[in-house]
Design a protein around this nucleic acid. Sequence first.
DNA 1: ATGGTAGCGTTGCTA
Length: 263
Amino acid sequence: MRLVTWNINSIRLRIDALRQVNSLMAPDVVCLQEIKVDDPLFPEAECRAMGFDHIAFHGMKGYNGVAVLSKRPITRVQTPSWCKREDRRHLIATLENGVDVHSLYIPAGGDIPDPDLNDKFAHKLAFVREVTAWMAATIRPEDKAIVAGDFNIAPLETDVWSHKQMVKVVSHTPAEVGLLNGMQAAIPMVDAVRHFVPPSERLYTWWSYRSPDWERNDRGRRLDHVWVTPALAPSLRSALVAREVRSWTQPSDHVPVMVDLDL
DNA sequence: ATGGTAGCGTTGCTA
């Protein structure tokens, strides 16, 4: 089974890019974040035409929104809300083979890395704490689950272009990294990409729109992740970050992350 | 210390 996760930053604007991703990678399952479309306007027919006969989406007008597109049957869909908000940042699609596929979009957290001065940062920390507690209570190591998405946190020093310059920047602060590690350890989940790419190797999935000449300067961050439960770890076969997608015409600032499992 | 770009949907908010 091939899974791709991608913060597409508007599914309607980048429906052709999604077609390209589908043609090139031929995924069985796609987890999308920031679809930025209200449910009645979701391009369902276009996704079906790509071969995704089983589609679950949870969108809202203008912001956020997550989806799972699948070529295999989906038997159950859950759309939990966190922090007493209706942000539409989490969708769980259970596949016919018993795998729970999560598409998760953790809040970005604003600019100031202090929860007392910045409500968005406080929300981000509370969100991760809440999801962690829920996962610890509902996912067991022997369950088959894949948690994929834009986590908006780069945990390793090699997940950012400069650890020293990023350590006080939202997405790489010790507070966020500590909470993300706690979320991973709660099951514990296996980082499917770092399972294949050693931590000594720099790896990014996002480059800011505001950074000029992103390709040469390469000031990226690894914000997008695929985690699997221990039950699925022996099935991991390969992982790939599709960096070249960032250089396509009118790109998302995030690129697709692909993981193959022998399922 | 600051500002840089993009998307949504119209004017400012979010990232």
